[in-house]
Amino acid sequence: MGRGKPALWSALLGLPFVGGGAWLYLSQQQYPPVFGVPFVAFGLFIITVGAYVHIVSPSKLRTGEGEEILMTRHPTQRVATVKISIGLPLLLLTVILLYFTRIPYVYPTLTFAVGLYTFSKGLYVYWANSLTTYYMTNQRVVKEYRFLSLVRREVPHRKVRGVQERQSLIETLVGLGNVIVASGGGRSLEVRMRNMERSEEFADAVRDLI
């Protein structure tokens, strides 16, 4: 799953839901056709948001006088890939348990809850990462996120009081890390950069500038 093609990947992820919904609506007799509607709607939601994310790519950072961009980073999509890869089989298992067996509903409900949460989280991480860019200039560290509106968080180098590195379990497995640049003024004055490849290198570069 590569950055820069969210429309394509979202379409690939959404089409199975659309196809499954169409099958439920048109080609089976066991359940009322209306059962296909939520699947089609969810698939179209994925495709539509993916196309939108594809269009709304972040613009280049506007720099001030004498400001120079030293490093530009994007979050890597490996965490999203892992979550989606875990969620999709669970959702497939849910469809089988819910619609093709008669085991009590508690079992498909459990797989549905875990699978849909993991899959949705993966989708969100994928889209959010596609819309996020990290910059380090010679004056500040900036995180820029644009979905409907632009959200830009920045900490000037002169205010940086600490640099923290963290790795979740999944990030450890896929070789990514988080870098948190804090100004010492609480959480509102920190920039948290997630799913970053070679995060140590970025953190060291920030430390060198303060």
């Binding site: 969810f42 948001v49 819910l98 979905f147």
Partner: peptide, 23 residues
Amino acid sequence: PFVLTVGGFALSVAGIAHQMLRG
């Protein structure tokens, strides 16, 4: 199963939309 499916997908869409809008 219809309520379960609709409820799950609706929660998922709401959660994703909320997170995406919030950043």
